[in-house]
Design a protein around this nucleic acid. Structure first.
Lengths: 184, 184
DNA sequence: CAATAATGTTAAATCTATTTAACAATGTTT
DNA sequence: AAACATTGTTAAATAGATTTAACATTATTG
């Protein structure tokens, strides 16, 4: 059975986690957060922020002196740092390792931070660190060369797969990729 | 401004995409899909499937002879293959490259397939292919050794980062990881 | 073929996250 | 201090995705 897309009970929803990180970032940069800051940062209307903050408060993750500042509780800060750490790892991985364009990496990291398990994040970090090991930077460079050679043509010259699956037709994609691991 | 967590207009919601892939898989394995199959596969109640299928039908992605079979249209199949391809790439990347446990990889791939951009998926595929290049398998093997050495202790001996961020306290995590790339 | 089982739909309710409109509180400026 | 601007809240509505309960249709089988 395929997993549920919805977050499990007891954990914060992706949306609330997103608010939490926004508050964390604001608190880091200006000492505290205000509803308007959050709203403009996330591109949502203020009442949405009000509602979210209320929920976060009822979960004991922020303290909110109404019409004044919003601050993370110790618990909230802990959680926020977790999300923020995930974001950083993902961001670095996407840009530094995979070579994803920064704008795109940002968007992807912003969603992945809420959806990718801690286990997998750990592994992402491992790989990130592996490439930082003395002597391994050149491996990464070699990959970047390989990658660039893929970008230049529709089909990667060195393998049978299309390198830009978002551009090409997917028609035979799924046949080409062995799905032995799949267990639906 | 941080991106919205919600899917953009015109594109399918993660939920509907998930149904679409389920139908795709069922169609591949038994020729067609039925409401009950989908429901049990996704672990949701049948009315949820009914509703989703209705929406997919109105989007021209499936044909549904009520009380009978659900089949992908040409358009639906194309989209489903796209999602399925993403899933495969992510699954292989997580298990083969990162060494994530299969159960966990499956869960993660199931959400990432809906949230990670095509651009990034392309890069994941590139890296996957890079490691398959003749002579590069040993690099991957080297990483796997490195990774295992991290698992054995809380803090990776070869770097200043904690390798298992989901287990350790995040308190100084965010300070350690430079977030220069972040632009909130 | 009638009874029962399996399958599918509709209806009603819930929950989360959002919006706009209207209003309330606070701060600033003259 | 009064007027205005900024900031924040409440209320009401919408939209998506879900659930349970009840009912409808189709299939099986005794």
């Amino acid at each position: 059975m395929t997993p549920q897309l919805h977050h499990s009970r007891g954990s914060l929803s992706p949306s609330l986690e997103h608010y939490l990180r926004a508050i964390f970032d604001l608190q880091e940069s200006k000492g505290y957060a205000r509803v308007t800051d959050i709203a403009s940062m996330l591109g949502v209307a203020k009442p949405a922020v009000s509602a979210a903050v209320k929920t976060l408060r009822s979960n004991g993750l922020v303290s909110h002196r109404v019409y004044e500042s919003i601050l993370l509780t110790e618990d909230g800060a802990k959680r926020a740092k977790g999300v923020s750490g995930k974001f950083s790892i993902l961001m670095h991985f996407l840009t530094d390792v995979l070579g994803v364009e920064e704008e795109q990496a940002f968007v992807d990291a912003c969603v992945m931070e809420h959806y990718v398990s801690g286990n997998s994040i750990d592994r992402f970090l491992d790989l990130l660190r592996f490439f930082e090991e003395p002597g391994n930077q050149e491996i990464l460079e070699k990959f970047h060369q390989f990658r660039r050679s893929c970008e230049s043509v529709d089909t990667c010259p060195t393998c049978s797969y299309h390198c830009d699956i978002s551009v090409i037709d997917f028609d035979d994609m799924s046949k080409k990729i062995k799905q032995s691991k799949r267990r639906v």
